[in-house]
Write a protein that binds this DNA or RNA. Structure first.
Ligand SMILES: [Mn+2]
Ligand SMILES: [Mn+2]
Ligand SMILES: [Zn+2]
Ligand SMILES: [Zn+2]
Lengths: 140, 140
DNA sequence: AATTAGATTAGAATAATTCTAATATATTGA
DNA sequence: TCAATATATTAGAATTATTCTAATCTAATT
């Protein structure tokens, strides 16, 4: 394998070492057109099925957090139902809005154009706004 | 003490037993005018300082989750900074928007009137919208 | 007031996450 | 080219967060 695919480009240009664990994870996460949302456990069980080379759970945590730090992933916390929370990661790292479908536990990107402009009317503090994100919950 | 204060009224009317642990927690959380946002660990260390009767951490979890189930508290998950998340609980149980100040890790309620109406333009699914909430992050 | 059924507490068990010693990779200079 | 060394990464161990459940407490019934 030449490892010169486009989805490895970000890894290659990041300064991170291209280890077989990272290549495997990178291949799965970034070789796709659409945004992908996943939890650490989703990722571990998918990787287990795809390959017989075991990647330790600690390494999956390490890699996902490293990718987040590099700006390749974004973390989205969701109160998924009355008794459990989920830490999702998102291959769409831009500021963007979400639907969360409580019947399927699916997190779905909303385009900016799907949500009207949001204007914060009262400037309660003088501090600079870093992001404004909307979460729309769909009932069960 | 008569335990007939207004902040105990919700507990009294909920069908839950008024134990000394719950009364202590209820007294601290609900005997106030303003919304209060806290984490489990915030609450534990505050309760430790206020009283010399130890309440076990498991009981604090139990009580907070019980209060949430009864609708006295609401859980708000925040990606507080690049390397840590927080499970806040909120004494304001209505659907409402928040500021999160990354320099102080403070979560602050936004009034509906402080945020313009939000209109979801594309009805991506046919499912009913349960809530729409905005999180505004203030930069460090 | 004793008996019983059900609710609650809190230490024990488990699950989630992070730490760090061992290993792997990259860099340097003979 | 290839040791030697420095730096980065991996993954099992340790720790922290959360849940489970047996012992205890409370309320209802007689
Ligand atoms: Mn958690
Ligand atoms: Mn967590
Ligand atoms: Zn997304
Ligand atoms: Zn709030």
């Amino acid at each position: 394998m030449k490892n010169n695919n486009v989805f490895l480009e970000k890894l290659r240009s990041s300064g991170l070492i291209l280890t077989k664990q990272r290549i495997e994870i990178c291949k799965f996460l970034f070789d796709r057109k659409e945004t992908f949302h996943f939890t650490i456990n989703d990722l571990q069980s998918i990787l287990r099925k795809r390959s017989n080379e075991k990647i330790s759970l600690a390494t999956i945590y390490n890699t996902v957090h490293t990718f987040k730090k590099k700006g390749f992933l974004k973390e989205i916390l969701i109160n998924s139902n009355s008794n459990s929370n989920s830490n999702y990661f998102d291959t769409n790292v831009s500021n963007h809005h979400h639907f969360f479908d409580e019947s399927t536990n699916e997190l779905i990107d909303l385009k900016d154009s799907d949500v009207g402009d949001i204007k914060i009317k009262k400037n309660i503090t003088k501090k600079k706004i870093k992001s404004i994100e909307v979460l729309v919950r769909l009932a069960k």
